[in-house]
């Protein structure tokens, strides 16, 4: 497979992947909260009848993930991004914690 034989892929791609995963997590909980707060938005995310907003949310998450992956990878291309490693790791950790907290039904219902 080409990805095993390729000698070098720049670090910016892995940094961009971690950052875009964190960004898409934030985007998902924010949009989920917005849909709860403003039910009119449901129309844009209710792609399959009977399943609710989840199909739209998946699609939205994919778009955010790949868009931010491309943008950040281009931004960091041929740059030394070694000093961002720890910050990006902490950002991912915080994003995961916030995502889990903000999607818990009790917190979600309090905020909506």
């Amino acid at each position: 497979m080409w990805f095993f034989t390729r000698r070098r892929i720049h670090e910016s791609l892995s940094l961009a992947a971690v950052l875009s995963a964190a960004i898409s997590l934030h985007a998902l909980w924010i949009v989920n909260l917005l849909i709860g707060r403003y039910p009119d938005l449901t129309v844009y995310f209710d792609l399959a009848s009977g399943l609710g907003i989840i199909c739209g949310l998946y699609l939205f998450g994919l778009v955010v993930f790949f868009f931010s992956l491309g943008t950040i990878a281009v931004f960091y291309k041929d740059k030394d991004c070694s000093h961002h490693r720890l910050n990006v790791f902490l950002f991912l950790l915080v994003s995961l914690i916030i995502y889990v907290i903000m999607t818990v039904p009790v917190v979600y219902e309090l905020l909506v």
Binding site: A17, V18, S20, A21, S24, L25, L28, W29, N32, G52, I53, I54, L57, Y58, G61, F65, L96, Y99, T103, V104, P105, Y108
Partner: peptide, 17 residues
């Protein structure tokens, strides 16, 4: 239902990363 889906939602992104 939404919460269960929301829990499942980020896993493909995390694995891809």
């Amino acid at each position: 239902i939404t919460h269960r889906w929301l829990v499942l939602l980020p896993i493909p992104f995390l694995l891809a990363t």
